[in-house]
Amino acid sequence: MLELPLVKGDPFHHVMEAILDLSDVAHVVCTTRGLNLLAVDTKHLAIVSLLFPAEDFKGYTCDEYISIGIPIRDLVNAIRCGDDKDTITLKVGEENFGTITLSFVSPEKNTVDYEFRLVDAKLERFRLPDRHFLRSKYQGSVKMPSVEFRRICKCLSNFGDEYGVISVTDEDLTYFAKGTDGDVYVEYKQQEEDTTIFKIDVREPVRLAFNPKYLNTFAKVFTLSGQVKLFLSKTHPLMVECKIGQKGRIRCFVAPKVEP
């Protein structure tokens, strides 16, 4: 049995909204310890993963291992229909396995129930990297304000939706996008005096090419947290992470473009 309390505008809802146009299904695994959501776009160029420990999720109840595929569009449409003041609960029960119920209860105790058929997610085969992998395969990381990151992603994506580059040295971070009529460069210098807001940490310079469209899709999600952390590798996908609550986190991976 699973009961997942949701609120319009919470991280779960935000992630679902963000991936609405990228993927049809979110693969959700729930245990007594918490929730793990994974969604991959249809071209397999971007993955988003949401980890939400039970202690950060007020009212979370799960007494067994549950692995389900949630139809994203149905869920988002239902949440959009709800009122901001509604208490929303996603339920998967033993008696109605194969379906999920989304219950909305208003402050006046009026209720609306949506029932969806679960879908096959087939995402178990994606195994995302752990901390050890990130330390060994990623040459650098950059911490920056999420609002600033979102602004850059929007700028890059507006300018050139196909080809962008992130470069980092121990002195600066550079974003670049190629548009049809020109290019855009954004440069951040490492500040000596305040490294709490912006901090570069690199073992060696890294240059990574990617499609800015995908990064822009996820950038809004990261504003749920004040800071984002970018992990950069010469050989592996770009990873962006933000912390949610005490121990929760959102990660996205964007597949690299490789120069011939």
Partner: peptide, 14 residues
């Protein structure tokens, strides 16, 4: 022009 790689080759567990 650069070649777009997919995520399967990085995170695909057999």
């Amino acid at each position: 022009s650069p070649t777009q790689k997919t995520l399967d080759r990085f995170f695909h567990s057999s």
